[in-house]
Design a protein around this nucleic acid. Structure first.
Lengths: 347, 347
DNA sequence: CTGAAAGCGCTTACAG
DNA sequence: CTGAAAGCGCTTACAG
């Protein structure tokens, strides 16, 4: 089965192959009759354009690259991949996936220079990528960075993120409005923005509600998400009997929190309320469904892809620096505490 | 910054551009002196070959496509993607991801004919893809199918899978050896091979140990994994007080099983033993770590990629049809039942 | 509205 | 061990 090319179609349709090219690319200047003839030939021959050839002559790969966080199979990363993939295909672009590894900066830049991808989406969540971002910028690679852990004020790079302080406050405020005053907080210990900001949000919410912040209410651990959540919650609830609610800095942590509460023989939400962050798909799939703060991964992904393509189409497109809103999703893990203090809710 | 090409390098190194091409492709017939000169020029100019051009002249995309299951962010699918990605990059191939959607068959075939990918890995787990597999085969697309739900005896298609009956028996046999006789089984209701085979494995293990199979010990539900596991286990344990262990047909189901057991005020593994299947990464990350049957996704992925590349390199490569072994992973969710019957273990 | 030419950056035979 | 030619299948200006 020899490859069918433009010329074969042209011959069959009785036109020049340039005209066929015009039809394929939907250029306006083709008479309906001709275009119909050509389309018929294309269908009969089952012709498919060779993208490599187009890529070469057009200087476009029609593919974008995604550098995702590790592990790829974490709920956050895999969802980001899923949504980025969907949006790319919707826009006629292929998605090439790259893993974060030794020498990735060079690999990415080469993929761009070698025209395998037209631009890069980089998820910096929980990663330190200054070097990589700088490289992309130096080589003028159209790129958008998701959840930047730092911004270098670069001219060619766009940023998309959420406000973790506000996000956390949405959850803690909700708990406070329900009447909780003794609220534990479980998070990772790390120097990463996300963790620091979420902890700051927790503290701020408490303080502004007139509840003094206490170090004993906060557990910061290192290790695997579920285990940090499980161990942290067990410790918090065993030592601080006054706690009526636990907020976990991520839903993955919250999974451990739920397990720990049950293990302690307590009920959710009757005895202890729980709130998470991120709204990973598990949040709504477990029992009881987890109340959490929704991080709009789908919007992030779709905005990232669209803006990247805009930048590819027109290199003069101004970079964006956008903060997307988060929102509280009330499900079944929160309830007023058994002995609610007389009207505490402020705003 | 104009693109740097073979010719620029050739000029700088003072050789013909053909020689540069030889050096890049590590062809043996180049004198060390020349090759050194060329490499120097490449480094100085920061030259990167244009893959689109190479693709065009070589007829190779240096990329393989993966059609993964939906949702992409399930533990199984995302891990498969992760491992396929790693192995592809290790072999110098890019990975293009495709989502299962309307018209995917045509899209995939076109990606191949249009030389965006050199071959396809198709994960059929929990999907009915006869049409797609047939299409790939008809168009001679090098392809390997993972977990085929059916095999058409096609000449150009390879298969990689596990034996779900044996896998399940490994788990149930283990429980039986520990002394359990009343073992519940939670699974999805569906006509998919995987479910049917796992249920058959459960039944077989029981029967061969001289334990009569009982329908009341099996829960088959539809819906979200965690919820099926949770509801099924709650129901099983509430109605069949004799049960001392629960086997879940997948680890995702098992997550729900664990939640349900705790909710009932029972302990794992003191009161109830639990075993899962698949060994998703969560299995070892939760508390208590889940005993389960390991499905070698990494081996599956790496074998799939390697065989696919072999087939791409040499179209006469004979298709493979391989069943990879699974193995029991003992962690902390199983224990002999409280009142173990006097020596039951057979083999 | 349509065609002939040149070129995208590489590689594959063919010579020498 | 190295070079000159032709071509991969398209597209981009340039003509008519």
């Amino acid at each position: 089965m020899a490859r069918i090319t433009l010329k074969d179609v042209a011959k069959r349709a009785g036109v020049s192959f340039k005209t066929v090219s015009r039809v394929i690319n939907h250029e306006p200047s083709v008479s309906p009759t001709t275009s119909e003839k050509v389309n018929k030939a294309i269908a009969e021959l089952n012709y498919v354009p060779n993208l490599a050839a187009r890529s070469l002559s057009r200087g476009r790969a029609m593919a974008i690259g995604l550098v995702a966080g590790w592990p790829v199979n974490s709920p956050y990363t895999s969802t980001l991949i899923e949504q980025t993939l969907a949006e790319s295909m919707r826009n006629g672009y292929n998605l090439a996936l790259f893993s974060r590894e030794e020498g990735i900066a060079k690999k990415i830049v080469n993929a761009y220079l070698g025209k395998q991808v037209d631009g890069i989406i980089l998820d910096t969540n929980a990663a330190d990528d200054i070097e990589l971002v700088n490289q992309l910028n130096t080589h003028n690679v159209p790129s958008v960075v998701i959840h930047p852990n730092c911004k270098n004020g670069l001219k060619h790079t766009s940023y998309i993120q959420i406000n973790n302080v506000i996000a956390t406050r949405q959850a803690i405020d909700y708990l406070i409005e329900l009447g909780h005053r003794a609220i534990g907080f479980v998070c990772y210990k790390s120097g990463l923005n996300q963790e620091d900001e979420r902890k700051r949000g927790y503290r701020l919410a408490l303080t502004e509600a007139g509840i003094p912040y206490r170090d004993e209410w906060v557990y910061q651990g290192g290790g695997l998400p579920y285990q940090v959540g499980f161990i942290g919650t067990t410790q918090l609830l065993s030592n601080q009997k006054e706690l009526t609610a636990v907020a976990a800095a991520t839903d993955e942590l919250a999974m451990g929190t739920l397990g720990a509460i049950r293990q302690l023989g307590l009920r959710i939400p009757e005895d202890i309320s729980v709130v998470g962050f991120d709204d990973i798909s598990y949040a709504s799939m477990i029992l009881p469904p987890l109340s959490t703060v929704h991080q709009p991964i789908d919007e992030i992904a779709s905005l990232a892809v669209k803006h990247l393509i805009d930048t590819i189409d027109n290199p003069n497109t101004a970079p964006i620096d956008i903060v997307l809103p988060t929102r509280l999703v009330v499900r079944d893990t929160c309830k007023p505490p058994r002995h609610a203090p007389a009207s505490l809710s402020a705003s």
